[in-house]
Simulated assay, not measured.
Amino acid sequence: MRFLMLNWRDPHNPKSGGAERVSKAYLSALIGRGHEAFWFANNFPGSKREDTIDGIRIVRGGGLGSSVLAAIKWYRQQKPFDLVIDQHHGIPWYAPWWCKTNCIAYIHEVLGPIWNAFYPWPISTLGRWQEAWTHRCYRNIPFWTPSESTRKALLDHGVKSVQVFPNGVDTVALPTLQDKPLALPLRLITVCRLAPNKRVDHAIRALKHLLAAGVPSQLTVVGGGEVAGKLKQLSEELELDHAIAFTGPLSDADKNTALQQAHFLIHTSIREGWGLNVIEANAMGTPAVVYPVGGLVDSTIDGVTGRIAPAESPETLARCLVEISRDPDKYANYRWNAWERSKTFAWDKVLPRACDWLEEQARKSRPSPLKKAT
């Protein structure tokens, strides 16, 4: 069978992230089952028109505002596909209206409040309205998402069918869990793209509250992005230079070492599709303390594999850390439970069910997308 993924970014795009990593894993698995897999994405500076990554044929064309038209033009020159995967990142590809074959929608998170982090009013309001309207138009198209939080958000927007497959992780869990005493200073880490929606400034402010509470702590910030300069400036303003290390992006091996050395991963995002780096940290024997938002409440089990703060504020995050720092036995339980649970998200456990479902979608009788989507 022939599968096509439509995604604004491909794995070689400098702005690619977790969505692209997991998308590549699914398409590579389909190739391993004897299928053909294609990926159409936007151009980026220095990109080639065509590429091949792990057997996936990458085709690039157009950019913001033009890539849908480029995709349609390219598509009409290809042999028929059995399934088109229309991946949404705020704005979809509108494939059900032009692909003339089986089509599903793939979405990591409903952006919702994330629009406010990137755009001022009224653009942010228009973005949120457009997203909800789009889901309503797609209501009869099968959706695929990694978390129950996103499933519920889509159902609230009128979507009728949503399949959940939690994301797998490339990070292999440690073969054995070595002791990691909860000794001071607390070693905290955040791993993400340094973008407005990740709210790394909240992690920095939580560190300030911890120090003010008399809990010696250190924070390592792993990643690069558009707000890196502002975050460094904030650390200077709060006089935290001595307690924060900005590493920039790290290789997978160095990232895993940093995660293994930390006591806690801190995640303060506005919303996530799943919280991939939570499971990556868990695989390294490091529990997470996260905000109570979509995705993060799915990847962390409160009081079992880590803590979910009761509110989205640096103060409550710091209070959770203070509480745990006083209970080494509870911390040890969090570590063990997180490590054991991370093993259930190994790709060899996730991919078979997801690929079975994708093949099932591809085998369906060809629908009438225009009629179904009205």
Rank of each mutant, 00 (worst) to 15 (best):
V200E: 01
T286D: 06
K15T: 13
R366S: 08
A41E: 01
Q87S: 10
R139N: 06
D329C: 09
D170I: 09
A228Y: 08
P292H: 09
A19D: 04
N337G: 11
A71V: 05
R33D: 14
D156W: 12
L210N: 03
K48L: 14
L182D: 01
R363V: 13
W144L: 15
S67E: 10
R2P: 04
N337E: 15
A309T: 07
K152T: 11
A262E: 02
P80Y: 02
A309R: 05
V191G: 07
K230C: 14
E323T: 10
L154F: 09
Q77N: 08
R49Y: 12
D54E: 10
T190W: 08
A243Q: 11
P185A: 08
K232M: 14
A318N: 02
R341F: 11
S47Q: 03
R136H: 14
P310N: 05
F3R: 02
S235T: 13
K160Q: 10
A19I: 04
S28K: 10
R363F: 15
W121K: 13
P181T: 13
N42Q: 10
I189S: 02
A117W: 07
A195M: 11
P45I: 13
W347H: 05
W336C: 15
P369S: 06
K372L: 11
V164R: 04
P45R: 09
A283P: 05
F38C: 11
L250G: 06
K343R: 13
A354E: 10
Y119E: 12
R193G: 09
R33L: 13
W98F: 00
N116F: 06
N102C: 01
K372M: 12
P367I: 01
